[in-house]
């Protein structure tokens, strides 16, 4: 046996366990789920079929179709607000904060990132409730006559999401900013650009890869999350993941849950395709 062949065999042997694991516990269950989405429920029995009935229902049944729009709307709003809040924060930490405080400031800015996901949403429920800290302060300061209902509305979901994704985006944008050579800004200034022009015309475009990577991550994680809308948004309007869990819980409707999951997958894939240009640039 040639050395090269032996090398290849050993290489393949090393990769095999991980590949088998991913095939067995990811690819096969995923394929089975796609098959399941073509089945339907008769009474409590799952009848295997090859029709698109579930998908048809998703796009015709108002309560299901609404879920797609609710999810897309929330995700879009969250992504935009988070980018708008995170960019200045990352920029201030990277350029305005004195160098020796920089890492400290960054660590502090993303500290709650490391708390448990469930706990983070619970904390917001605590803060935003009718008797919570925020309403207490606003009423106490005389800014509001009476507490306003935020909990169990879309606003609460959005606030909870924005909190998490501002931290995530600050990290990705900061790591992008810190790699930029200060010479870009200096050159632009020498050529007569005002400070505002430097930011808008030079720095901002250069951070686009970091922004897009962060925005894509935000989109994917936000649209697939069940906890935040469930704890903060309540059951008034349901997002896609909440609908999926509802199918599982109430009726054991695996076929419909699978079909909704496939729709979720397709949305994420489309988002990836839309960002792929910038995501690739990041890797170079």
């Amino acid at each position: 046996m040639s050395i090269e062949k032996q090398e290849k065999r050993q290489g393949a042997a090393l990769v095999a366990p991980a590949l088998l694991w991913t095939l067995g516990f990811f690819a096969i269950p995923f394929a089975a789920m796609v098959m399941m989405s073509l089945a339907h429920l008769e009474g409590r029995e799952i009848v295997q079929g090859h029709d698109l009935g579930n998908y048809l229902r998703i796009f015709t049944d108002p309560s299901l179709r609404r879920g797609i729009f609710v999810s897309l709307e929330i995700t879009a709003v969250v992504t935009v607000i988070s980018v708008l809040l995170a960019w200045p924060l990352a920029w201030i930490i990277a350029t305005r904060v004195p160098a020796r405080w920089r890492r400290m400031a960054l660590l502090l800015a993303v500290l709650p990132f490391w708390t448990s996901y469930v706990v983070r949403s619970y904390s917001w429920a605590l803060v935003l409730g009718e008797k919570g800290v925020v309403m207490n302060a606003l009423v106490g300061l005389g800014l509001l006559a009476e507490p306003v209902q935020i909990m169990a509305t879309r606003s609460a979901t959005i606030i909870g999401f924005v909190h998490f994704f501002v931290m995530l985006l600050t990290l990705t944008i900061y790591s992008n900013l810190i790699q930029l050579s200060p010479n870009y800004a200096r050159a632009a200034e020498d050529l007569g650009a005002s400070r505002w022009q430097v930011i808008r015309l030079v720095i901002l475009p250069l951070t686009l890869p970091g922004v897009m990577t962060g925005a894509f991550l935000t989109f994917v994680l936000c649209i697939g999350d069940y906890i935040t809308p469930q704890i903060l948004g309540g059951n008034n309007e349901l997002t896609l993941p909440q609908l999926i869990m509802l199918q599982l819980g109430r009726r054991g409707d695996f076929p419909m849950a699978s079909a909704l999951s496939v729709v979720l997958m397709v949305i994420v894939t489309l988002a990836y395709a839309a960002c792929a240009r910038w995501l690739k640039m990041e890797r170079v």
Binding site: T22, F25, F26, A27, I28, P29, F30, A32, M33, M36, V220, L221, I223, G224, D225, Y226, P241, I244, M245, L248, F254, A257, S258, S261, L264, M265, V268, Y272
Partner: peptide, 18 residues
């Protein structure tokens, strides 16, 4: 790398069924 791009809920659902 693929599982990284799929939300946990979908991975969980697939495994649950299997």
């Amino acid at each position: 790398i693929a599982p990284m791009t799929v939300s946990y809920l979908i991975i969980a659902l697939g495994l649950l069924q299997m």
